[in-house]
């Protein structure tokens, strides 16, 4: 194989193959969960709409902006890491992590408000999916913050690319989850 030919097949994917395997697996799981939510919703549109009324769409909207901005910082960190601006890359990763924490705080307040209303996952099918999907997602936010911290510690262009890719996956899941659970 000569050096000039563009990479083919799996080698063409930007970043690490194993991270893409994980990303695709995660997307399949969240995709199936959201599709199941939509399918069960068909059987009880009124109940779902009524249950959704208890959610705080504004908080979730703010969280969308928070997470998307955090993703932007992670993407910028990769550019800096590639051009050798290590300090700047670490700063941007730190900013991405702080926004991740902000997301979790907002999420926590949301859960507290739900539990004060006495809403659990057994209240209604809607809340079963709500807790399951947003809970799974929040766990990925936590995992993502840990990964970004590890990347900032052992920084290299490759590590940054792999860590940022996980973070973007968390972002991607949220932008699909947000309208389906909170807005429809």
């Amino acid at each position: 194989m000569s050096e000039q030919t563009a990479p083919q097949g799996i080698d063409a994917l930007p970043g690490d193959l194993m991270m893409w395997v994980l990303i695709v697996s995660e997307l399949l799981v969240f995709g199936a969960g959201l599709a199941a939510f939509m399918a069960v919703r068909v059987t009880d549109p009124v109940g779902f709409a009524e249950a959704q009324g208890h959610l705080n769409a504004t908080a979730a909207g703010i969280n969308t902006v928070v997470l998307v901005t955090s993703g932007w910082f992670a993407a910028l960190a990769l550019r800096c890491s590639e051009t050798g601006q290590i300090g700047r890359a670490r700063g941007l990763l730190g900013a991405a992590m702080v926004l991740g924490l902000v997301f979790l705080v907002v999420k926590w307040l949301e859960y507290v408000a739900k539990s004060e209303l006495g809403i659990t996952f057994e209240t209604h099918d809607f809340f079963l999916f709500y807790y399951m999907l947003t809970g799974f997602h929040a766990m990925h936010v936590i995992a993502g913050i840990v990964i970004l911290a590890l990347v900032a510690w052992k920084i290299s262009p490759r590590n940054t690319e792999v860590g940022a890719a996980f973070w973007h996956m968390v972002d991607l899941v949220w932008v699909l989850l947000f309208p389906i659970i909170y807005l429809l």
């Binding site: 063409a12 992670a74 940022a164 973007h168 972002d171 947000f178």
Partner: peptide, 22 residues
């Protein structure tokens, strides 16, 4: 709303996850 989410997902895949390079 779903259309807007679709565009956002597409942006994250192409730019943030850099699939525009593949």
């Amino acid at each position: 709303m779903l259309a807007l989410a679709w565009i956002k997902a597409q942006l994250i895949l192409r730019v943030y996850l850099n699939l525009q390079s593949a």
